[in-house]
Design a protein around this nucleic acid. Structure first.
Lengths: 89, 89
DNA sequence: GATCGATCAACTGCCCCTTGTTCATGTTGG
DNA sequence: CCAACATGAACAAGGGGCAGTTGATCGATC
């Protein structure tokens, strides 16, 4: 499923236009993004929890050359699916 | 951020009521859930990709007793954040 | 009030992340 | 609708981080 298909399904579920569904999808994704950014986590009961994670610098490997290289400290996003999401699948 | 706060922010972004925002959030989450279920992945460009993952049975540990135990095969959901989501944080 | 989520313990298989390249796919504004 | 552009997926080797287990408790949410 891509964004266009997601918008289609949201429009069907809301019984609304695709333009309106598109705005809804944008607003939801943008709000989740801001929640992760500002609060470090977003919990959606029954779906899962997004968590901002800081990863320390570490030594990795350049797969092209095989040489060890330093991977800089970074920030990423984890997602823990809720039990009921997993049961839905 | 919890779901109520998410709905608040979506309502602000859409300039709409909380009830309407709540329906939008529900529709988006439900549509993502269905996309994961039916297509095994949902890609939202600029946010990330949800992927249905099948995990084989394996041996784990009961942390209560220390005894080895068999973890059944299961289905879970992975999330790979997009590069631009990570840059946003 | 019932349900869900977070936390914790020990252990181990799976996953993340690096560079560079290529190709495919997706998005969006005209 | 479509073209231009952007984004994502895949792959290589290796090591650190994470998922998942049970059971209990507590807090939050619906």
């Amino acid at each position: 499923m891509n964004k266009g298909q997601l918008i289609d399904q949201v429009a069907a579920e809301l019984g609304d236009s695709k333009a309106s569904a598109s705005r809804a999808v944008e607003a939801v994704i943008h709000s989740i993004t801001n929640g992760i950014k500002e609060d470090s986590n977003v919990t959606i009961v029954g779906f899962g929890t997004f968590t901002k994670k800081n990863r320390a610098a570490r030594t990795g490997r350049n797969p092209s050359t095989g040489e060890p290289m330093q991977i800089r400290a970074s920030t990423t996003v984890g997602f823990k699916p809720s039990a009921s999401l997993k049961e839905t699948l």
